[in-house]
Amino acid sequence: MTDASLYDRTAEPEFGDYVTLLKPRVMSLVVFTAFVGLLVAPVPVHPMIGFAAILFIALGGGASGALNMWYDADIDAAMKRTRKRPIPAGLIAPNEALGLGLALSGIAVVMLWLASNAVAAGLLAFTIFFYVVVYTMWLKRWTPQNIVIGGAAGAFPPMIGWAVATGGVSIESLLMFGLIFMWTPPHFWALALFMKSDYNDAGVPMLTVTHGRDATRRHILIYTILLVPTALALAFTAVAGPVYIATALVLNAMFLLGAVRIWRRDDAACDADSHAVEKKFFRLSLWYLFLHFGALLADGLIARLAPGVF
């Protein structure tokens, strides 16, 4: 919870500080996955409407980032990695971030509704609510499963993109959601295994600390085992083509192998090679998500630009 008197504005902010408040790096993932969701949908969208929809989805994501920074200013101030964010750095007052976040949330949802439809706008509103209220305010400080819950918020964008085109929810968009949702825990827990984090000092429970590193390794394997059928199920839907099938087969085999390797290790083995296996798994996880959505995009483009090639 933020206390306005703790983070009084001490310097004049630049325009870029307000942009930082919107978490532009998170936004880039939102833009990419929402774009893929929109493009692979069976209903063509006017390019201008598609562009505007992606823009407002990104803006909604940014607004939830600002609201997250407003609420989590105390955590950000306590951790080295986030201490220079605009609020703990004294550049932007907490209430200003709150106002900006609320205003941009409203603008993003209303504009997405006007640009596309109520289902897409409703999903965006729910995503913002879920990330800010359910994740940030409620579960993040309460349970070490916070990563799992937070992953759901990050998994909504392709569903919103799909809804922009089709006006609804379907098995394909649910599976795209499931892909990111199931991918998030192994991705972050692998990072938590080799990164020295000060989350615990800031009062955020992390699985590595609350349940130990062995439990974290087990969790990585369990979520990877759940992730593989989700990714492969997407291959049986209409949005996937040969590129996706080939990509999913190779990447899921590699990912599962990596998770098993992590699961079979102990702390001594990790120290011996400075977490080489965990670091490799983490790098693979970045490629995993990017290439799965990239493959969907490729199949979508092939189907649209050169139908009948496969």
């Binding site: 006017h46 390019p47 201008m48 409407i49 562009f51 505007a52 823009l55 006007l114 640009a115």
Partner: peptide, 13 residues
């Protein structure tokens, strides 16, 4: 510009 572009797109479709 985005609102104007959206208007054009909506009208033309």
């Amino acid at each position: 510009a985005v609102v104007f572009g959206l208007t054009l797109a909506k009208v033309s479709t």
